[in-house]
Write a protein that binds this DNA or RNA. Structure first.
Lengths: 107, 107
DNA sequence: TATAGTACTTACACATTTGTATGTCTTATT
DNA sequence: AATAAGACATACAAATGTGTAAGTACTATA
C-alpha cells in the first residue's frame, strides 16, 4: 500500500480541510495551551499574547465545530465556560510537537 | 526541560512563521509531490489538480525564500527549471505524514 | 508566417481573514 | 446610581490570499 505521491482531488481536499483547523493564525496556539488541560475563556485569553476577544471566540467556535475542543457551560453569574480538547483534538499532539521541533531546528 | 505549555511571544512567532510555509492553500501539496523527487515546473503543474500558474509560481517562490525547495535553472530553449526539496524541506516529511494520518482517521 | 513549447510576469478583481471598537446580559458590590 | 465581572456579539475597516486573463522571451517546427 505505498502512496504514489500524486496529489489527487481527494487527498488535496483532506489537506485543505485540515488547514481549516490548524491553518488559522491562532488555532495551534490555542490547541497547544489546551494540551495542558481544561481552560476557561478568560484563562485562554491571558495565556495567548496579543490575541483579541473576537479572534479567540471565532477560533474556539471553529475548533468546536470540528470537534477538536468541547465547551462546558456553567449557569453561574457571570457565566463560566470551560474548554477541553476532545480525543480528536488530543490526537493533534504529535503534529504540533513535530511542527515545534521542526521550527526549533530550522528557523 | 519540560515545556510549560505557555504560548510566549517566541513560540507563537515560530508557529506563525511555519504557517507561512505550510499554511497556504497549495504549499503542502507541492511539498508532498516533491517528496518523490525533483520535478520541473510543468510537471508540478500537471501533478497538482486545479492549481494555476500564478499560484504555483508564488508558492514556489515562497518555499524557495524559506529554503524549503531549491531551484536549478538550465539555459535551454525553451528554459528548463527543476525544483528539489532541500534538507530543511525533507524534514517536513514527518509533519505532513502525521497530518495526513490524522486527516484519514479524523475527517 | 504562424504556432507551439516552457517558465514565467503583470494588472486587476474578488474572497477570506484578521483587527478595532463598541455593545449586550445578569447580578453583586461600592 | 454607577461600575465590574465573564463570555460573548456586532459593525466596520484593513490586510492577505486567491483567481483570471493576458502578455513576455526565445527558438524550433509546420
Amino acid at each position: 500500500m505505498e502512496s504514489k505521491n500524486i496529489v489527487t482531488s481527494d487527498n488535496a481536499c483532506v489537506l485543505q480541510e485540515i488547514l481549516k483547523v490548524i491553518g488559522g493564525k491562532w488555532s495551534m496556539s490555542i490547541v497547544y495551551i489546551l494540551f495542558s488541560g481544561t481552560h476557561r475563556f478568560s484563562q485562554l485569553e491571558k495565556s495567548i499574547p496579543h490575541i483579541n476577544t473576537r479572534m479567540l471566540i471565532k477560533e474556539l467556535k471553529t475548533l468546536a465545530s470540528f470537534d477538536i475542543v468541547s465547551r462546558k457551560v456553567y449557569a453561574t453569574v457571570p457565566p463560566t465556560v470551560e474548554y477541553t480538547l476532545t480525543e480528536k483534538g488530543k490526537m493533534l499532539k504529535p503534529i504540533i510537537d513535530d511542527i515545534y521541533e521542526w521550527g526549533k531546528v530550522n528557523m
